[in-house]
Amino acid sequence: MIGGVAAGPGRIPALVKLGVLAVFVSSLVALHSPVALAIALAGVLALAGILIALRRFGWRAFAAQLGPVLWLVVPAAALNAWLAGPEAAAVLALRVLAAVGAAGIFTLSTPVPELLDAIGSLLRPFRRWVDADRVGLVLALTIRSVPLVAGLVGAVREARKARGVERSLRALAVPVVLRTIQTAEELGEALIARGADDGPSEERVSLGR
């Protein structure tokens, strides 16, 4: 195996997968029948099952993709059942699960560098205006930062509960934003330290030229 998940038989280029995913998710939005959506979800789960059996990714990783959505879908579906009826609730829940499942398969079966390469090749015609490398870097950084920042939100929410100011949105957002900024500044420093970019000194020199 060369480069971990990047190798293996039947490898589909990321751009093609991206196209397939886009078409699939778009058609989910167009579907309004619970039966059709249930079939779509079954298809997604079957594909995930095959890929897990082929050891492309672990079932735990796939469950982790769906997990956070599950606890969200259940109350949302209950609310929708009450507001808009059981059929609308089923449509929402099935659509979300099928879309997230498909997106999860795409995410898990596409190593991030490959995904970034794909975006890079999409951007190539615009080379004069956009630096594809930096775009790729910022996208990867964001993907990396989502669990980090979500963790910050979770930690602050707990602290807020402990202090009994659970209801104030501001009491949540101020520390979250400050810590997000701090995390980003540390990350920016790490980027420089790891040679991804010039440091403060070179910037000064280049401005002087």
Binding site: L141, S145, V153, I192
Partner: peptide, 23 residues
């Protein structure tokens, strides 16, 4: 690099704030 990290972190923050309480 600092701008890149701030952009990424706030993109991630929007994603994190979007997650809970969706209805």
């Amino acid at each position: 690099a600092r701008d890149l990290a701030l952009i990424a972190a706030f993109a991630a923050l929007i994603a994190a704030l979007t997650m809970p309480g969706a209805l």
